[in-house]
Amino acid sequence: MEETEFLAKAKPKAKAERPKLYKVILLNDDFTPRDFVTCVLMAVFRMTESEALAVMMAAHRRGAAVVAVFTREVAETKALAGTEMGREQGYPLAFTTEREE
């Protein structure tokens, strides 16, 4: 069998698809203290204090802010962790996820 015949019969390798990415979004509310939101962002999303303050203020001004972008599983896990931290303290703090276009 010639090399060209062999190459023609060889199956092309399947390309690895990049995983879909999801945004974690912080939703503003009028009850959760700003300091607490900042602490949650630092703890769950490993932000510096200045990064956390900037995201918290963006959500406060706009009603919502993108915190970070991850694969679906990581985004959902972090959104749930942040929301649960708020619930444990009796706050309506909420994070959600949305597929990035």
Rank of each mutant, 00 (worst) to 15 (best):
E3I: 05
E3R: 13
T4S: 15
T4Y: 14
F6L: 02
L7C: 01
L7Q: 04
K11E: 01
K11F: 02
P12G: 02
A14K: 05
A16Q: 12
R18E: 12
P19G: 09
L21W: 01
Y22L: 04
I25G: 11
L26N: 10
L26D: 09
L27A: 06
D30H: 10
D30I: 07
T32F: 08
P33S: 08
P33H: 06
P33Q: 06
F36N: 09
C39Q: 14
L41H: 07
M42G: 07
V44N: 13
V44R: 13
V44L: 14
V44A: 13
F45S: 12
F45N: 13
F45I: 14
R46A: 15
E49Y: 10
E51V: 10
E51H: 13
A52G: 10
A52Y: 11
M56W: 07
M57F: 05
M57L: 13
M57E: 11
A58W: 00
A59R: 05
H60L: 03
R61K: 05
R61C: 04
R62V: 02
G63K: 06
G63N: 05
A64R: 09
A65S: 15
V66M: 08
V67I: 12
V69E: 01
V69Q: 00
F70G: 01
F70R: 01
F70A: 01
F70C: 02
T71M: 03
R72S: 06
E73N: 11
V74T: 15
A75W: 02
A75S: 06
K78R: 14
K78C: 07
K78N: 09
A79M: 07
L80S: 12
G82S: 14
T83P: 01
E84S: 09
M85H: 12
E88I: 08
Q89H: 15
Q89V: 13
G90C: 14
G90A: 14
L93Y: 05
L93W: 03
L93Q: 07
A94K: 05
F95C: 02
T96L: 04
E98M: 10
E98L: 08
E100S: 01
E100L: 03
E100H: 01
E101V: 08
E101C: 08
